[in-house]
């Protein structure tokens, strides 16, 4: 056990515990806040693994944007404050879900742990890749996927706008149809 191992175990324990709380808590808003803690400490995991750029992007995009979007969606859908049992599926379904989750964990661990057993990386003298290597790879080898991703973001923006707009119109029509029926 090196120092990095101990630090990673501590940060990883925070990540796993807050992720577990975010999927089990009965408070709707607490779930999003525990997700924030989990994603933030996962950025710490990336830092310990020597990938500063990925950790910072994780903080900016996930913690700064995605969790805020989730919180906005919870507010716009009038999330109840306080413990609420109706956000969970029935007990038998949760038991099945826990079994399937445990099976996923066991399957992945059985596959990955032998793959990484005894593999160590020397990070104390600077990461082997480092940010300059990532920049050169992004704008060299990966430049076309990178450009396609910007198109994907644009399409997602337009798609979200179109989805909310088009279905809103049909919703207005159903409301007027119901109003006519009422009249």
């Amino acid at each position: 056990m090196t120092t990095r191992d101990i630090v990673f175990a501590a940060v990883g324990a925070i990540t796993a515990l807050s992720a577990l709380l975010s999927v089990t808590t009965k408070h709707v808003v607490h779930s999003a806040l525990w997700l924030l803690v989990s994603l933030g400490s996962l950025a710490g995991c990336y830092l310990v693994l020597g990938q500063e750029l990925v950790g910072l992007v994780q903080l900016l995009v996930y913690v700064g944007a995605i969790v805020v979007l989730v919180l906005f969606a919870l507010m716009l859908t009038r999330a109840p404050i306080g413990p609420h049992a109706e956000i969970d599926t029935p007990a038998w379904q949760r038991v099945v879900g826990a079994l399937l989750g445990a099976a996923t964990t066991v399957l992945l661990a059985a596959l990955l742990l032998p793959l990484f057993s005894g593999v160590t990386v020397e990070l104390d003298g600077g990461a082997p890749g480092g940010t300059p290597a990532i920049a050169q790879a992004v704008f060299g080898t990966w430049v076309w996927p990178f450009e396609l991703l910007s198109v994907l973001l644009l399409v997602a923006l337009i798609g979200a706008f179109a989805v909310s707009r088009l279905v809103l119109r049909s919703e207005d029509e159903t409301v007027t149809a119901r109003g006519e029926v009422r009249r």
Partner: peptide, 11 residues
């Protein structure tokens, strides 16, 4: 130096 088994287990 870091062992990569811990991150794999966390994933």
């Amino acid at each position: 130096m870091i062992h990569l088994q811990l991150p794999a287990a966390l994933a």
